[in-house]
Design a protein around this nucleic acid. Structure first.
Lengths: 148, 148
DNA sequence: TTTATTGCAAAATGTTTGCATAGCC
DNA sequence: GGCTATGCAAACATTTTGCAATAAA
């Protein structure tokens, strides 16, 4: 069951959008709600299906728009794995992704600062990177995503 | 100028293909030659354009086929960055990729074993990964790819 | 001669765009 | 009223597929 946004989450949305002169709309609330409700890295299409449960009239184009907007204002991250469709993730803490070969599921893996540091250290002088994407691909015995 | 395959490279191709009952064809030689000649992580389309210089009649579908075959037998790696088209890379040593924000160019970054180890160490028990993909995104002052 | 590969065209996929309509300070 | 967002349909780019013709071992 998809819950409504908490007051806190609504403010978070409001603030992030407001910063760049963008508006809170029912569609954006719906999409954001969906993203927070089940943090299983849904594809656009999955977000669309879920959003329609909350708001039956919402269009796919709008879901694309909302997600793009959210990425733009830093509310969610895109997750890409090979040629698969883009997935979305509201976990803003630094983390890596693990894609299960068998189930296709994507899990978040915590990324300690010292590992990030060791990664940055391999960059030759003159290379400066803000974004590091790390993704594992393999088998997970765990049946479910760790809570996140 | 695109060189011909060296004897050594042709044997490498022959062996990798032969292992899985696949044949050496002029098209595969052409595509492989192109990949080795300029290691700048070309897209399928770029490989196609270059391959046509060597073999004017070659088709796009065949270039797709060749690349898929090469990936399948471990001759090249696919490199994906966000929604951009897939790029191909004949560097088989463990390495990360750095994509320059400004030029779009992709550079190989050497990946020391101890960094790989530290990355593996962040996986919770039960998670087992053969493949780790690491990509940086940022600015490179260096004008050109380091030789590779 | 057998089996794999090619090349073409058509289809599928995922995403983006243009634009008229609608909604919000 | 002016700006932004929505929803639809059409356009797009990339990749995949089916299949008859061709070429490699």
């Amino acid at each position: 069951m998809i819950q409504n946004l908490t007051e806190h989450d609504r403010e978070h949305l409001q603030e992030a959008l407001g910063k760049s002169g963008q508006k809170v709309t029912p569609q954006r609330e719906a999409v954001f709600t969906v993203l927070l409700a089940e943090r299983d890295h849904p594809t656009v299409d999955e977000v669309f299906q879920r959003a329609r449960e909350v708001m039956p009239g919402v269009s796919l184009a709008t879901v694309y728009n909302c997600l793009e907007t959210f990425v733009g204002c830093g509310l969610v991250r895109q997750v890409n794995h090979e040629r698969e469709s883009t997935r979305y993730c509201p976990n803003l803490a630094p983390h890596a992704h693990f894609r299960d070969k068998e189930t296709g599921r994507v899990h978040d893996i915590e990324l300690p600062p010292e590992v990030i540091k060791s990664l940055r250290s391999i960059l030759p002088p003159g290379f400066d990177s803000e974004v590091i994407e790390i993704s594992f691909h393999g088998r997970a015995q765990a049946k479910d995503s760790p809570a996140n």
